[in-house]
Design a protein around this nucleic acid. Sequence first.
DNA 1: TCGGTTCAGAGTATT
DNA 2: TCTGAACCGA
Length: 739
Amino acid sequence: MNLLENLNDRQLAAVTLPNQSALILAGAGSGKTRVLTTRIAWLIQTGQVSPQGVLAVTFTNKAAKEMLTRLAAMLPINVRGMWLGTFHGLCNRMLRAHHRDAGLPATFQILDSADQLGAIKRLLKAGNIDDERYPPRNLQNFINSAKEAGLRAKDVEVNDDYNRKFVELYALYDAQCNREGVVDFAELLLRCYELLDRNEILRQHYQGRFRHILVDEFQDTNKLQYAWLKQLAGSGNAIFAVGDDDQSIYRFRGANVGNMADFEREFEVRNLIKLEQNYRSGGNILNAANALIAHNTSRLGKELWTQAGEGEPVRVYEAQTDGYEAAWLVEEVKGLIAEGHARAEIAVLYRSNAQSRVLEHALFNAAIPYRVYGGLRFFERAEVKHALAYLRLIENPADDTAFLRVVNFPPRGIGARALEQLADAARGAGSSLYAAVGSLSGKAGSNLGAFIKLIDSLRFEAAPLTLAEIVELVNERSGLVAHYRNDKEGQERVENLGELVNAAAAFVSEEGYAQDAPASRAGDEEAATQIPSALVAFLSHASLEAGDNQAEAGQDALQLMTVHSAKGLEFNVVFITGLEEGLFPHENSLSEMDGLEEERRLMYVAITRARRRLYISFAQSRLLHGQTRYGLRSRFLQELPEGAVKWLTPKVPVGMGAGARFGAWYDPAARAAPAVSAPVRTAASSHGVRVGQTVRHARFGEGIVINLEGSGDDARAQVNFGPHGIKWLALAVAKLTPA
DNA sequence: TCGGTTCAGAGTATT
DNA sequence: TCTGAACCGA
């Protein structure tokens, strides 16, 4: 099977780049994931690197899974042992393997955001801190931003007393986490970074191993993630970074687009490849996207084009109110369904979650099935978190967060007073709540003692069981199942607890976690020595991958979501709603530095989700916070090229006569399509040259052989010289020396 | 321990 | 206007 078949010129050049750092600017729908996975497969197939020598990083589990699936289809190897995963997943893996060096217990647990907030509230309570003056949420943000900037409490600059208190609390929080053997998400990354920074032997080991580092969605990396990557790259390894500055929409959570420019400079990137051919949308949709994003000033520069023709115009609709907007949308959707469109291929996008209510209301009344993204995920459900807390206590009794969550759930007569006493005792002894139980007497003491006994016996009984059996044991013996069975509305919760047993069974079989032979994980010599138990691994999995956000995923339903959550997805039909000043662009963004440009990128992301048909709608008035607000039509509408747009309602001129400024949109057919790439055939060897071999040419420097054809004097080699491009060279003439 | 009342806040989100 | 969290009384 030829991996390079059907790649366009740019894709081919990117996939077969020599071993030098590269920045691939991948536009929406340009085959980004394909390039990334084919690059890995090609490197392995041509023997340039072993599967163990590749490190590939993504942001979401979904993206990681997608890459793994595609890789497995391209390569006849077991891709499971590869270091391909999310930043957090890979850091977790490394920390598990070297937990001693990292100063962590083997069974360390991962706090999700809710757990972390709980831990912070507990900290404030224990220290008698005024949580009005120091809101837990603010402290959480403060700690996470500091960690994401690579700063410990001692490194944070203090400029006033208020600030000093935050820093002080940050230090206390870290101390509490250490005591309890838990780490939050940001800590996974920072700990891993510090581990590599401090431990030269380890750093050199991994630098020697990961010859090829590939990063997905590079524009979304934060400072710490970039620093971590730099450390693994060292001075010799190449980073293959794929990203799109025009789709950078996560600055509010720490993403630093500037990493792209820093990367170019610091790694002396000479290979900058733009993937601009779009395989997703019609020409009008792309013209709208291009024209819109052209209004941004800080761009690396990129313009999407397609061979697909202009397709349908972008339809724009003006409604009187948000209610009418929803009503119109319902009618339009009915028509689309009647025409045979699948509901799941129709997406309704909005800027903020609050907008979904009106839409849901209308859809519900019209009996159109829909699915809203972004609800509670499976592992975040209360009953599931309860069961997980019991499991955590089995592994790590010092986990006070888990302890407090279930010590009195189901109710067993342990009230606030008892817990306060216990907290005092624990603080006095500098121990965990669990360990302090022995020092309490009386009724509270005996109830707590019974709880400890329960956990201890669960731990004892769990020892010989499989993971699924352990979960089942906990479900029953904790009293959770019985508790929810008695609850009128607990049926679904009981089912979810059963689902957790299934999830445990699936986890063991998917991850190859045979409990008897833990060291059998292929190709992973570090982890083999210190493989965590299946239970510990499952608990990490539960924290790192919160699972799907709603049931009924199988049903053919309309897809409702924010523009942010639509990133990376595509649909035949897309509705972008609420295009009003103040809403999209959102008013809060206007006071932020470059906030408007980020909003515009968000709109760009929204537009480029559509394959065939795109609707954009707005309302003259909208009910917001109980008040009717009259918003102007979004400036983004004015930034679309007239020729690509069809107004479904009369276009009322606004202010300065927009539209005139924007010239006629270009004809996509007039854009020269690049020559179709030469047929690629793979020959074994010719003139002593092999595919995948690095060679040197007097004029073009180092390159990598990507293809061979002909024989004898006619033999030619196709060589990718990186910044000098891809060349066909006659081997009888060109002087190629092995490099 | 639960259920009702009060009050603030209402932008986007993955791990 | 609506929601969620915190709080208080029974």
